[in-house]
Amino acid sequence: MEPDLIAGPDLIELDGVEKVFDVRKKTGFLRREKHEVRAVDGISFTVPRGEMVGYIGPNGAGKSTTIKMLTGILTPSGGRLRVAGIDPSRERTRLARRIGVVFGQRTTLWWDLPLIDSYRLMHRMYRIPDARYKENLDRCVELLELAELLDVPVRQLSLGQRMRGDIAAALLHDPEVLYLDEPTIGLDVISKAKVRGFLRDLNAESGTTVLLTTHDLTDIEQLCKRVMVIDHGRLMYDGPLAGLHEAGESERTLVVDLERELPPLEVESARVVKVEGPRQWLAFPAAESAAPLVARVAERYPMVDLSVREPDIEAVIAKMYADKSTS
């Protein structure tokens, strides 16, 4: 009856997927030049059922284009793509019943109407059985704290409230996959924590497969065991988060506050990258422990305070990309 379910453990399959855009650029008065932009340039990966994967990369790397192809919004220019056994671009509406999508930058809710109206419409449009709808709505309302907001028109909601409302809307029909495009963008710290907590529980309890794009490394650290990095339309890395640090040969930073201004410190396995009065920044390999370094510094120099900074995602990717292109 359900051939898609026995198709294999992989819910999402991409094989050499490409998306090429023709861009017309103005080169003068009435003169336009046409050139190709390979937004996604041959990407292959699979995501098994129940996994939660981070999909990251700098702006314009091809993240959103990939999500748009996975949801059926955009038609790929080449390669093979399947979600739950369905070709998204050919059977967009059939796929729509089995996936949930949240765009961080724009809402899928009806802007001028109260939140509950959007949910009622989803109920009918997705043909969700009454009992199931009620159960899912009650759970979302409770966990995402929406009770007070149901009668408020969407346009009057704050960004964090709206995001919670959007996530609930994407889950009412029990989707097998949930795509989240920048779900924490522009949210305050508390809202971010709420959204992350909810997603973690969702994945653990319902086994919903989640693919999320983000700029925020903390999203990945707290939610995903596996991370994929895309840049210039190519998959640069696919593996655990810890491995990403190695792959990028990234460095952590030890910030030391000294008693007084000193010339750049000299310690092995670390180098000074910045000096500002009595404060100095030392870079050391991310894979190494900070403890021996701290001990060495404390031994030789008058240290008042210290802190260790994690590498940020942009820096990791930039370094990774630089390494690849020089090799």
Partner: peptide, 23 residues
């Protein structure tokens, strides 16, 4: 222009019906 057409494309209904019935 504002990209909200994308949100209609991920719903299980023909886009034309959604655009026509909106507002």
């Amino acid at each position: 222009r504002d990209g909200t057409l994308d949100t209609l494309l991920v719903r299980p209904a023909p886009v034309i019906a959604q655009v026509a019935a909106d507002r």
